[in-house]
Amino acid sequence: MPENTPISSTSSNHRIEHFVADIEQTPLQATDSLNEQAAPLSLWAEAWKNLRRQPLFIISALLILLTLTVAFFPGLFTQTVPTQCDLINSNAGPDGGHPLGFTLQGCDVYARLIHGTQASLAVGVFSTLGVLIIGGTIGAIAGYYGGWLDAVLARLADIFFALPLILGAIVINSLPAVREHRSVWTVVATLVVLGWPQIARITRGAVIEVRNADFVVAAKSLGVSRVKALITHVIPNSLSPVIVIATVSLGVFIVAEATLSFLGIGLPGTVMSWGNDIAAAQTSLRNNPSTLLWPAVALSITVLSFIMLGDAVRDALDPKARKR
């Protein structure tokens, strides 16, 4: 008989009993059976199911919905023309039909708030789309193909990353060519040019994690071409961290627009935006703080909703929570 080596020596002065559980109580279940009752659930459907249960998500989604409605249909919320200002009302308090009072210029604060939503939100949305397209593409290509292409693109991203957002935006927006044609689009372009490296880094990381997954190799051995595998398998599976960062970035871009407008090099004074209103209100801060307060609150709540949305989405898409 071949030698049997137990891990430790037997102290065999006691008898080991052979115990068998009651079979009635421990019935053998079918190996690997499929629950046919449950409804099919894709990852996105599951994430959506998780999301709907989170109060954080519900609150932020409702707020964002409200902001979007205000941006698209300001007429639903106020009939007052925000540009019709009368110095008689300068810094006047709230009164009938003007719930939030007047600015130094005698403009209705509430009406300006409502009509300023569009520009602020537009900058946020379009800048995010821009960085997603540019940063996402560059990051995906760098991560997927690797090698020298990755090295070159990574250095390129580093170069732009070395220009801090506000610093770089000041330089770009003060160029005569830009300064003379200031609009939502110049601000968006500036933020995209300086903001893409972050998304590129995140996308690159996510793509690298997925690109060698067995299902990508399996697709290639089916005859799926390299580019097609990137589009049909790699990118859809790299999206979740990118979506999370993009949601948070949207808030960050709204703040950046306000900051640039505050510095006088963001949106032109003719465009109504929260940033411009806050900048204009700083002179009357001491005697009429509410002119600064309201646009600041509106902006903060919007930004907050996007950050909370990002948080909720991150929890819903968390791969660690998903596995078990």
Binding site: T5, P6, H18, F19
Partner: peptide, 26 residues
């Protein structure tokens, strides 16, 4: 091979336990 006594668990319950070789043989 390594233990004197084997305890078999299935779905959170001990279904059988006893001397190792005994469990294998019977």
């Amino acid at each position: 091979e390594r233990a004197e006594k084997v305890v078999v668990m299935y779905k959170g319950r001990v279904v059988e336990s006893g001397p190792a070789l005994e469990i294998l043989r019977n």
